[in-house]
Amino acid sequence: MNWFSNLLSSTLGRKLVMALTGLFLILFLAVHLAGNLQLLKNDEGQAFNIYAHFMTSNPLIKVISYVNYAFILLHIVWAIILTRRNRAARGPQGYAVSNNTSHWSSRNMGILGTFIALFLIIHLRGFWYEMHWGGIATANYDGVDYKNLYAVVDAAYSQWWYVTIYVVSMILLAFHLYHGFGSAFQTLGLNHVKYNPVIKFVGVAFAIIVPALFALIPIVMFLD
């Protein structure tokens, strides 16, 4: 298995891990958004609470969620390793003047990612932790008790600073995705004259629409 550890420890292999985990997390975002949009349904949170219950109890979803946690950690740890290596490659003395022509977000994925990771902590502590281990009131639908996560969300989104954190974080996520989506395909070597425009278009659309919808939820709920 020497060749395999070689692969993973090479600069290309490390990028491969970043791209694969990144693409998985992009997929996760889409699913997560679909669920969250139910918060906006005018049913006092019934659909959302049933969905949240399903997501925390279905065995298959559970397995996938563990993979998801692992990939988030892998994405972060590998990013730190890569960043350290890239820093070292630059050598001790930096440029006095720099007029880099590349896109700002492409050069600052680490900073963007760090803020997103901080957001993730707040986010997980506020909802995911509460859902699993917090003392949440229940709501009864058709004779079955469900944890009323909707009430937790609703309470959180009534505070203006909480909403602000969410909106700002989604903007950062948008920039992260703006570069990350297309970059992952390039890293995987999926670069083709026919499909490049499609990848570019879908990437930009995804980077704008998904974070925008995520941000829309707290805004709407706050205004309500």
Partner: peptide, 22 residues
């Protein structure tokens, strides 16, 4: 060639495309 590139201490690619631009 990739192994030698890594051994020389060059960094990884962040796909910023600055290289192509210059």
């Amino acid at each position: 060639m990739v192994a030698q590139m890594d051994a020389e201490g060059f960094g990884a690619c962040s796909n910023t495309l600055a290289c192509e631009a210059e």
